[in-house]
């Protein structure tokens, strides 16, 4: 609905190529411009778009797409392949520690979906591996963050470790890990407060937790609706905490989710899961090819290829 313009534009550009049979350099420029606009419209970071379009152009030229009989289809194919490739070809599973417990820490901006995703992940581990996770309430700042985690813990029947809001998160994690050792929990999931990547004091706190807990997974949780800012956020968290993966939330909305491409391009870290709702079962594995289709509005693109 909001993206009809794109479909029409592509149809026009591709239609023109097709009618001509032979394609000139300026025709290709026009198609590249449409691709560029499509990606920008999907919220892919402008710098990432620039590099991406350059690569597509190179591939298109190398493959002599211009001289082929079906240039439009070929360009679309190249774009889709390139997008899937940048986003990492295959789904990457969660790390598992050789010795229990496997420690997973959620980090990210305020309101991104860390606490909710933590609950979902714990439930997934319980269902798929009969895991016995312990949840650690490490957010002492947001009002009622602990109540929220406890309510989720109750829903999914997983224990929550909390020391209230008067103890530092580092100390809470230390004692939580001790309890996990004692109870032989196989997974520990640490909830942390939302913070800006430029908030040095709070970022240092996360570094301290990292040094103490050595998480097997530090998962950056990002709202799929994020705009151009996604690059700065992902860079900031990755440079300071060396994240191991990304969770993209709120994809049940109608965003195109171009942030996925931006984050992947600037961090090189895999997107592992996507959040598709508020329920505890609404967590899915990330598939790069599906995300590529979504960013491009590929349902449309496939019809275009067939029509062309």
């Amino acid at each position: 609905m909001a993206f009809e313009g794109l479909t029409e534009r592509l149809q026009q550009a591709i239609g023109k190529l097709k009618r001509k049979g032979k394609v000139s350099e300026s025709d290709v420029n026009e198609v590249m411009r449409e691709i560029r606009l499509a990606l920008l419209e999907a919220d892919v970071n402008f710098q990432v778009v620039k590099d991406f379009v350059k690569d597509v152009r190179k591939k298109a030229t190398g493959a002599k797409v211009l001289e082929s009989l079906t240039p439009a289809q070929q360009i679309v194919k190249i774009v889709n392949e390139q997008l899937t490739e940048v986003m990492g070809q295959e789904a990457v599973p969660l790390q598992k520690s050789e010795k229990i417990p496997t420690i997973i820490m959620m980090v990210g901006l305020q309101g991104a979906g860390k606490t909710t995703t933590l609950g979902k992940l714990a439930l997934k581990l319980k269902n798929e591996q009969h895991a016995r996770p312990l949840l650690i309430a490490g957010d002492v700042y947001r009002p009622a963050a602990i109540d929220q985690l406890q309510a989720l813990g109750q829903q999914i029947e997983a224990p929550v470790f909390s020391l209230g809001t008067d103890v530092s998160p580092v100390e809470i994690v230390r004692q939580g890990l001790e309890l996990a050792q004692e109870k032989k929990n196989d997974y520990v999931l640490i909830d942390t407060a939302g913070r800006l990547q430029i908030d040095q004091k709070l970022m240092d706190e996360l570094k301290q937790i990292t040094q103490l807990a050595h998480p097997d997974e530090t998962l950056l949780t990002v709202d799929a609706m994020t705009g151009q800012n996604a690059v700065e956020v992902a860079k900031g968290f990755n440079e300071q905490l060396n994240i191991t993966g990304v969770v993209l939330t709120k994809l049940d909305g109608d965003t195109r989710g171009g942030a996925a491409l931006s984050i992947r391009a600037v961090t090189g870290k895999p997107i592992k899961f996507i959040g598709q709702g508020e329920k505890m079962t609404d967590l899915d594995v990330f598939y790069p090819d599906r995300m590529a289709s979504r960013i491009l509005g590929m349902g449309d693109m496939l019809t275009l290829i067939e029509k062309a």
Partner: peptide
Amino acid sequence: LDATTGQNALT
């Protein structure tokens, strides 16, 4: 509206 939201803010 979250100021860091992209195109979706308009929708």
